[in-house]
Amino acid sequence: MLKIENAVIENGDFWLSANLQVETGQKVAVIGPSGAGKSTLIGAISGFFPLKDGQIFWNTSDISQTNPGLRPVAMLFQDSNLFPHLSVAQNVGLGIRPDLKLTPRQSDIVQTALVRVGLEGMADRKPAELSGGQQSRAALARVLVQDRPLLLLDEPFAALGPALRVEMLDLVDDLVRETGATLLMVSHAPEDARRIADQVILVEGGVAHSPQDTKTLLDNPPPALRAYLG
């Protein structure tokens, strides 16, 4: 269970307060107007924005002061999720060992993950030789080998076309089902939330609200959300 307790998150001049919890295995969409603080919330959970106040817990352990790389978190950013000068296999391998000294068994795990996301035979290519969708698949393969209980997506598929984005969301859906990971994904599109999210965290007015059932919230949106959805 992810628990954010009386947190005030600082991102430059902007502060966001959050007091909420997400049950293990839930799939949660984070929605709200641009600049409301969706990425700030995700950034605080992954450790990139400091807390002014409050704590973040994963199960019983306080992770508020933990370094980003040591949190129980796998994260995909809006862009630059792959290092362009490293091969696909190396990019995925970084998820197992950041120094890339992989044992043969660990290399097998990388290969298996690549097969799972549909990138068989592309291990030695550079990201530039992949299509946009294949690049997203490579990043997801790394998420798979990272094997962290919490997956955070900060709109990594925003640049893809609608059909490809749906394809990636379905792949994410499958992966979190298989691994039992808890998913938090920032989204601009309510239809994405409806597609895979059980719950929605609404971020607006400097506050990240507690998760609510997706269908209930979207079918009967409060005024702030209604203004955003149009």
Partner: peptide, 20 residues
């Protein structure tokens, strides 16, 4: 461009320097 990704993957000082 890559600082946050390096941190998220727990690439420490020398690793990040050498690899990225």
């Amino acid at each position: 461009r890559f600082g946050r990704l390096g941190l998220a993957l727990n690439m420490q000082g020398w690793q990040f320097l050498r690899r990225v």
